[in-house]
Design a binder for these strands. Structure first.
Length: 755
DNA sequence: GCAGGTACTTAGGATCGAGTCT
DNA sequence: AGACTCGATCCTAAGTACCTGC
C-alpha cells in the first residue's frame, strides 16, 4: 500500500524501464522527439521555402499592399515575425522564386483564383455529413453590444464585495443539520447569494478569506478474511497485507478486458512486485500463475450483499455520507459557504488510462497526509491532519483557487481539490469565458480575413499558422499541445497533427479539394471527417506535406504557444479554445433560431433544442459509446409506441361509434360521451407524439453525448433566453445541478439575449 | 525558444439511486 | 416487492494555457 516506490528498480522481467520518478523521464524524451526536431524541419523548409500556388506570384504586389494595409489596421501585426523576418528574408525570397519556377515546371500551377467557399457551408462536422449551417455573423456589430464594455460584464448592479468582507467571517459554524432525521428539505433561509451582482476581484486575487476542513482520505485497507485465498501455481499462498491490497486491485478488475492486455499486466506486475516482501518477490515470478479467483468472487459477493442490504442499513450509510458531506463538503470563502467539488482523495488502485496508454496497470499510490498541501487563509482555522500525521505543507496563496493539492505518482502531475461549479469562483470564470467568446464574435470576420490573407504569406510559419487556425475555426479542433511521447496515449490536436492524420483528395465524390481527417483526439476519441476546403488551403497542405514522413508533424513550424501568442495579438484574451466556445455557442443560437417553430408543442420544441444541441456536439465531436442497453431500451420504447397506436385506434373507433350513437339518440348524455371520447383521442395522440419524439431523439443521440457541450461550451444565457422566449420551463433543459451551475445565467438572461 | 511546472477546464465512463414497471 | 431503467452524479484522466527561469 503505502510507501516509497522509488527505491530499488528490481530485477523484474520487464524491469529495465525506468518507470517512476518522473525526473527521469526526460532521458528518453530526447531521443523520442528526434523526429520532430526542428533542425530537420528547418532544412526542409529551406529547400522548399515559399512553395505555393501559382497565383501567389501574380498576387504578389497586391499582397504586399494588403499587408501594408493590414499592418495599419492592426498595428500589432506580429512582433514575433518582425524579430525574425529580417534575417530570413533574403534567403526566403530566393527560395520562394525558385519554388515558383519549379511549380511551373511540374505543372503544379493553380487554376485562377477561387473565391471563398460558400459561407453557409462553413462547418463540417465529423462523421455526419449533415451540415451545420449558419450565417457568418451578419449581426456582428449588433447595437446591443456596443454600449457594453468588455470589462464591465457585471456592471449591472454592482454591490460591493467589500461590504461583507468587512463583516469578517464570523458567520458561525454552519448551523447543525444534525437534527434532520427526516428530509424536510429545510432549505436554509439564507437565500441564494447572487455573486454575479457583485464586483469582481482584479489583479489575480482569488479570495480574501478561505477556511476548510481538508480532504477526506480513502478508507484504510481492510485485509481479506482468511477464507479468501490466493493461489500461486495452484498452491495457496498467504500474502503480506501490502501485497494483498495490490492484488485485490487486480482481482477487482478481473473481468475487465484490460487485465488481458500485455502492457497492463506488465505494468501491474512490476508495481505489484515492488510492494511484495522479498520472499514473495522471490516466489511470485509469473503473473499467469496467479489465481485471483477467490478474491474476485469475494468482491462480487460483497457487492451483491451491498445491494441486498436492508432499507435501514442503506439509510444509515446515506446518513453517514451526508454527515461527511456536511462536514467536509463545504468551505468558507469570503464569507460565503461554498460547496467543494471533490473533497475525497482519490483512493489507491490500478491506473487505467484511456486508449492505448503506456502506463495502464501501474499502481496508483495511496495518498497520505504527508503528501498533502493545504491552502487556506492565514487567519483561518487550519484543518487538522488525522491524528499522528502531518501535512506536507500549509500555504496561504490567495492567487489560486485550490484548497488542497497533492502530486500523483503515475505522471507526476498535481491534483487539486477545488470548488463546485456553482461556486462564485468557478462561475465567474465560466461567465468570463463566454464573454471572451462574445468578443470574438465581434472581430471574427476580421480574423478570418486575416488568416485567409496569411495563406498566401511567403513565410512558411505564417501559412501554417493560418491553415491551422482555419481548421480550428472551421472544424472546432482543439489546439493540440505537445505531449511527452511514451508517457501518454498517442493523441493529437490541431497543432500536433501529423502527416499520417490527413489525406488529400483533389477530387472526391463530386467535391473538389477534400481533406480527410482521421486521428485520435482527446481521450483517444477518433476524429474522422472529410471536408472540402478552399483551394488555397489544399495547396498549402500539399506543400506542408512535401518530403515528409507519415509521422512528421504537419505543422512543423507551429505549436500552440506560437499560435496563441498570435491570437493574443489579434484580440485580447484570445486563445485557440475560444474558437471552440464561440463556434459552439453561435451554432446553438443559430440552430435554435432555425429549428424552433412557434406552432410546435413543448415536447417538439424540446426536440428542436436537443437537435440544436446535437449539432454542436457533432461539431465538437463529442461522442459516446452507445449505451449497452441501447437496443433493448429502443425496443421497449418502440413497443410502447405500438401499444399507444393500438390504443389510439381503439379510442378512435370508440369515438366514431359514440358519434353515431349521438346522431341517433340526440340526447345530452350521448353528446357528452362524444366530447369525452374526443378528449381521450386527443390525449392519446399527444402521448403518442411525445413517445415518438422521444424515440427520434434517442435514436439520433445514440452515439452522441450532449452533456459535454451543454456544460462547457454553450453560453447558458442562450438556452435560458430560448426557454423564456418560448415559455419552456428551464427545468426541461437543465437539471438541478445544471441549474445550480448556471444560476447566474438563469437569473440575468432575458428572452432577447443575444450571444 | 524552450523545458518544466502549475493551475484550471474539459471529458467519457462507471456507479448510484430514484423512479417506473411488472 | 423486486427487477429494471435511465438520468444524475461521481470519478479522475486528459486536455489547454500560461508562467518562470534559463
Amino acid at each position: 500500500m503505502s510507501g516509497d516506490h522509488s527505491h530499488n528498480e528490481d530485477q523484474i522481467d520487464c524491469g529495465s524501464r525506468v518507470n517512476d520518478s518522473h525526473k527521469h523521464k526526460d532521458k528518453y524524451k530526447e531521443k523520442e522527439h528526434k523526429h520532430k526536431d526542428h533542425k530537420k524541419d528547418k532544412e526542409r523548409e529551406k529547400s522548399k521555402y515559399g512553395n505555393s500556388d501559382h497565383k501567389d506570384s501574380s498576387d504578389k504586389k497586391h499582397r504586399d499592399k494588403e499587408k501594408e494595409k493590414m499592418k495599419h489596421k492592426d498595428g500589432s501585426t506580429d512582433k514575433y515575425k518582425e524579430k525574425h523576418k529580417e534575417k530570413r528574408k533574403e534567403e526566403k525570397m530566393k527560395s520562394f522564386d525558385e519554388k515558383i519556377k519549379k511549380e511551373k515546371e511540374n505543372g503544379f500551377a493553380s487554376p485562377p483564383y477561387m473565391k471563398s467557399e460558400p459561407e453557409d457551408d462553413f462547418y463540417h462536422s465529423p462523421k455526419h455529413e449533415r451540415s451545420l449551417k449558419r450565417e457568418r455573423d451578419v449581426d456582428d456589430n449588433d447595437a446591443e453590444f456596443k454600449p457594453k464594455k468588455i470589462k464591465t460584464e457585471n456592471d449591472k448592479k454592482a454591490k460591493k464585495r467589500k461590504q461583507d468582507e468587512d463583516i469578517k467571517s464570523k458567520k458561525t459554524k454552519h448551523k447543525k443539520e444534525v437534527t434532520d432525521g427526516k428530509k424536510k428539505a429545510k432549505k436554509e433561509p439564507e437565500e441564494k447569494w447572487k455573486w454575479w451582482e457583485e464586483e469582481r476581484y482584479t489583479d489575480g486575487v482569488k479570495w480574501k478569506f478561505l477556511e476548510h476542513k481538508g480532504p477526506v482520505f480513502a478508507p484504510a485497507y481492510e485485509p481479506l478474511p482468511s477464507h479468501v485465498k490466493f493461489y500461486y501455481d495452484g498452491k495457496h499462498m498467504k500474502l503480506s497485507p501490502e501485497a494483498e491490497e495490490v492484488a485485490t486491485f487486480f482481482a477487482k478488475m478481473l473481468d475487465h478486458e484490460y487485465t488481458t492486455k500485455d502492457i497492463f499486466r506488465k505494468n501491474f506486475f512490476k508495481d505489484w512486485r515492488k510492494e511484495m516482501t522479498s520472499e514473495e518477490r522471490a516466489k511470485l515470478t509469473d503473473l499467469k500463475k496467479c489465481d485471483f479467483g477467490e478474491m474476485s468472487n469475494y468482491f462480487k459477493a460483497q457487492s451483491e450483499a451491498r445491494k441486498a442490504m436492508s432499507k435501514e442499513e442503506k439509510q444509515k450509510i446515506k446518513e453517514e455520507n451526508e454527515r461527511i458531506l456536511q462536514q467536509y463538503g463545504f468551505c468558507l470563502m469570503d464569507n460565503h459557504k461554498e460547496r467543494i467539488a471533490n473533497f475525497r482523495i482519490e483512493p489507491p488502485g490500478l491506473f487505467r488510462g484511456r486508449g492505448d496508454h503506456p502506463k495502464m496497470g501501474m499502481l496508483k499510490r495511496r495518498i497520505r497526509p504527508q503528501d498533502i498541501i493545504i491552502n487556506c487563509s492565514k487567519d483561518s482555522k487550519v484543518p487538522e491532519p488525522p491524528p499522528g500525521t502531518k501535512w506536507k505543507e500549509v500555504r496561504h496563496d490567495n492567487k489560486v483557487t485550490w484548497l488542497v493539492s497533492w502530486t500523483e505518482n503515475i505522471q507526476g502531475s498535481i491534483k487539486y481539490i477545488m470548488l463546485n461549479p456553482s461556486s462564485r469562483i468557478k462561475g465567474e470564470k465560466d461567465w468570463q469565458k463566454y464573454e471572451t467568446a462574445r468578443r470574438l464574435k465581434k472581430c471574427v470576420d476580421r480574423i478570418r480575413a486575416q488568416y485567409r490573407e496569411d495563406w498566401k504569406s511567403k513565410e512558411m510559419r505564417i501559412r501554417q499558422r493560418a491553415v491551422a487556425l482555419y481548421f480550428i475555426d472551421k472544424l472546432a479542433l482543439r489546439a493540440g499541445n505537445e505531449k511527452e511521447e511514451g508517457e501518454t496515449a498517442d493523441t493529437v490536436g490541431c497543432c500536433s497533427l501529423r502527416v499520417e492524420h490527413i489525406k488529400l483528395y483533389p477530387e472526391n465524390e463530386g467535391q473538389e479539394y477534400v481533406v480527410e481527417f482521421d486521428f485520435l483526439g482527446k481521450d483517444s476519441i477518433r476524429y474522422y471527417n472529410r471536408v472540402p476546403v478552399e483551394k488555397r488551403v489544399f495547396k498549402n497542405l500539399q506543400l506542408f506535406m512535401e518530403n515528409k514522413e507519415p509521422d512528421d508533424d504537419l505543422f512543423d513550424r507551429l505549436n500552440t504557444s506560437i499560435l496563441n501568442k498570435h491570437l493574443q495579438e489579434l484580440m485580447d484574451g484570445l486563445t485557440a479554445k475560444v474558437f471552440r466556445t464561440y463556434n459552439a455557442s453561435i451554432t446553438l443560437q443559430q440552430q435554435l433560431k432555425e429549428l424552433t417553430t412557434a406552432e410546435e408543442n413543448i415536447p417538439a420544441k424540446i426536440l428542436s433544442y436537443n437537435r440544436a444541441n446535437r449539432a454542436v456536439a457533432i461539431l465538437c465531436n463529442h461522442q459516446r459509446a452507445p449505451p449497452k442497453t441501447f437496443e433493448k431500451s429502443m425496443q421497449n420504447l418502440q413497443s410502447k409506441i405500438d401499444a399507444k397506436r393500438d390504443q389510439l385506434a381503439d379510442a378512435k373507433r370508440e369515438l366514431k361509434s359514440a358519434k353515431a350513437d349521438a346522431k341517433v339518440r340526440k340526447d345530452e348524455k350521448s353528446k357528452k360521451a362524444v366530447e369525452s371520447k374526443k378528449k381521450a383521442v386527443q390525449r392519446i395522440e399527444e402521448q403518442l407524439m411525445k413517445l415518438e419524439v422521444q424515440a427520434t431523439d434517442r435514436e439520433e443521440n445514440k452515439q452522441i453525448a450532449l452533456g459535454t457541450s451543454k456544460l462547457n461550451y454553450l453560453d447558458p444565457r442562450i438556452s435560458v433566453a430560448w426557454c423564456k422566449k418560448w415559455g419552456i420551463p428551464v427545468e426541461k433543459i437543465y437539471n438541478k445541478t445544471q441549474r445550480e451551475k448556471f444560476a447566474w445565467a438563469i437569473d440575468m438572461a432575458e428572452d432577447d439575449y443575444e450571444f
